[in-house]
Computed example of a mutant assay.
Amino acid sequence: MYNYEGARRSAADEDPGDPMTDSATRDFDQDLKGLLAGMDSRVPKPFPERPGGYPDQVAAALIDAVLSIRARYGKADTGVRAAVTRYKDAVGDQTPNSLSRLADFDAVKLVEVLHNHQMTGAETKASAIVRAARNLSGIGVETAADTDPLDPRQKAVYVNVPGLGAVTWYYFTMLIGAHDVKPDIWVKRFVQLVLETPELDSDDYVRRLVNAAAAELEVDPRVLDHTIWLYMRSREA
């Protein structure tokens, strides 16, 4: 369970480039109360179950995290999840847990395997996946067990790939099993909506705030993240 006091006091994993001008003078406790009240009036309980992720499947988690950037997630046989299944079938492994194997994959061939020509940054998502796998395996990260969400070196080599950033790093580690929140556009918009603060756009602040709300509600932060995502997507439908 995420530690609420740690969320308030620690900035050890704060992104160096995260803009703090919109949150440095805010009252965290007051914002937390406002977020909890807003959730109580908007989000039904019990909270919906979240997708299970990919525990002990580091390659599947990496593919999912990158392909999910600005994309429709789809169902089991469509979208991102279907692309992950195609990779599993291509390598003949339904629990792919090797980054070095993914790092050795030809990026052009991976585009064909995934049936995905989408771009992130200036290259294909498939190319970004291969680069991230190479960077991580290059510092000894081979399996899900080797992945440490709090290791600044691992995070640094991941976000060093053009088109990848801290949000997808958080999502990647959450898919493996980290109890965390990804401060993507949907989560930030929810916090902005509930607190009536459109200028609040600090990824780190929003992440700490939602993690602290999960601790107060005694739920897995990933459940809260998924619940918010469903609510915001329903508003856009």
Rank of each mutant, 00 (worst) to 15 (best):
H117G: 09
G140C: 12
D220P: 03
G165P: 01
A60T: 04
P48I: 15
V141A: 03
H179M: 12
W186H: 12
R131P: 07
A212T: 06
A215T: 14
A132F: 10
D204P: 03
R8P: 00
V80T: 14
T95K: 10
N160H: 13
D15M: 01
L99R: 04
S68L: 12
Y158F: 11
G34Q: 06
A128T: 03
F47E: 00
T168C: 03
D40R: 02
D93Q: 02
S10P: 09
N160D: 15
R26G: 12
L217S: 06
V191K: 04
V159Y: 05
A11H: 14
N3Y: 06
S23F: 01
G163W: 04
V157S: 14
D18N: 02
Y4L: 06
R235N: 07
A37D: 15
K75D: 15
R42L: 15
T147H: 05
R8S: 04
G17K: 07
L230Q: 10
S100G: 02
R81S: 15
H179Y: 08
E199A: 15
A82K: 02
D40T: 02
L99D: 01
D204G: 03
G52N: 12
A90L: 14
K188Q: 14
H117Q: 14
V181A: 13
D64Y: 06
R50F: 00
M39S: 09
S234Y: 12
G177P: 12
D40I: 07
H179I: 13
V141P: 10
N97P: 00
I228N: 08
R72M: 13
V84A: 11
G53L: 10
D18K: 05
T25L: 11
D93T: 08
R134C: 08
A37Q: 14
T120K: 06
P16L: 11
T124H: 01
L136K: 10
A107Q: 11
V43H: 05
R86M: 10
M39V: 12
Q57S: 08
T173A: 03
T143K: 11
A212R: 05
D13M: 12
S234T: 00
G163N: 02
G121S: 03
G140D: 06
E142V: 03
A132V: 00
Q118D: 15
T227E: 06
Y2H: 02
S202Y: 09
V141N: 04
H226L: 04
D22M: 02
R70D: 07
